[in-house]
């Protein structure tokens, strides 16, 4: 028993050093780290190579939620299949929904693809709209502002550091957005095909036109017959590329690329994917790969 108690203290003490932030997806952990610097320790429950819709409420996630001071989620039902179990099992009152320690990014941005009709015949539709809000860098400004305020609320001792951290991030980020927008100007109006409906915000930002998706319905893996149908339907709109996320299975996009004779573009989708070590690299790589496929 004494050994157990010692172990518990050994593990419990370091957690006090910095604000312990537990994010469901890597992008909000990266944003929190940008804002908080060494005042926070932000980790993510998932990686860029995992499908954020399909995560198990793994024992390790429950253990990490137990010790978190602030939980960051995307919301809009992205984590509905596992986060409720993790929150309930954690026994941590600070991060329950409705508490200051529970932060939902989707509450602060303008949502796209909000369904007019809620029917699962439409696939895995999200009532609040498309949850993949991290594909538009402008969303990081509004979410970051709200997040810095929330971090200040949860950890008032470092409120100034978070405010300054956000101000520095926002200034740098605005400059980068202007630069990316200028460089990505040739992408405006380009017709593309996506594997999953994951890029609504990216397309909205850069002016790309989605003419088809490979998944017949969101979250439903396409069969070859369905892929052939998409190829025939999309042919008239002359798509220039087919886009998938690093975590998506490669087969559908590669099949389509070969059939339609267009490049298959793998975008990082979030922080931690190959060539996307941080938020800046995420959009830099996204822009570069899109431009390269136009050549």
């Amino acid at each position: 028993m004494r050994i157990l108690t010692l172990l518990l203290f050994a593990f419990a003490l370091p957690a006090q050093a910095a604000l312990n932030i537990f994010s469901t997806v890597p992008e909000w952990a990266a944003l929190a780290q940008e804002i908080g610097g060494d005042k926070v320790k932000a980790t993510a429950a998932t990686t860029a190579l995992q499908d954020p819709h399909r995560i198990d409420a793994r024992p390790s996630l429950i253990a990490r939620a137990r010790n978190a001071d602030l939980l960051l989620a995307t919301g809009a039902e992205l984590e509905v299949g596992w986060l409720p179990v993790v929150l309930r099992e954690s026994g941590n009152p600070r991060i329950q929904t409705g508490q200051p320690g529970y932060f939902e990014a989707a509450a602060f941005v303008r949502m796209l693809d909000v369904p007019g009709k809620l029917d699962r015949a439409g696939g895995d539709v999200h009532a609040d709209g498309n949850p993949h809000i991290q594909t538009d860098p402008r969303n990081f400004l509004v979410i970051g502002e709200a997040l810095a305020a929330r971090m200040a609320l949860v950890d008032p001792a470092n409120a100034d550091a978070y405010r300054n951290g956000y101000a520095a991030f926002a200034e740098r980020w605005r400059g980068q957005i202007r630069r990316w927008e200028a460089q990505a100007a040739p992408l405006k109006g380009i017709a593309v095909v996506s594997q999953h409906k994951a890029w609504a915000y990216l397309y909205d930002w850069l002016g790309l036109r989605e003419v088809a998706t490979l998944e017949p319905k969101p979250g439903i893996e396409p069969s070859v017959a369905q892929l052939a149908r998409v190829r025939d339907q999309a042919a008239a709109s002359r798509p220039r590329m087919v886009i998938r996320a690093a975590y998506n299975s490669a087969r559908p996009a590669e099949w389509f690329a070969k059939e339609a004779k267009v490049p298959a573009v793998v975008l990082p989708f979030t922080v931690g994917a190959p060539a996307a070590d941080d938020l800046t690299a995420l959009f830099e790589t996204t822009k570069q790969r899109l431009l390269k496929s136009l050549e």
């Binding site: 518990l8 390790s60 253990a63 026994g91």
Partner: peptide, 12 residues
Amino acid sequence: VKWLAPTPFMLQ
């Protein structure tokens, strides 16, 4: 009644 220990791995 359940108690989750504050360990980095799950212990309940």
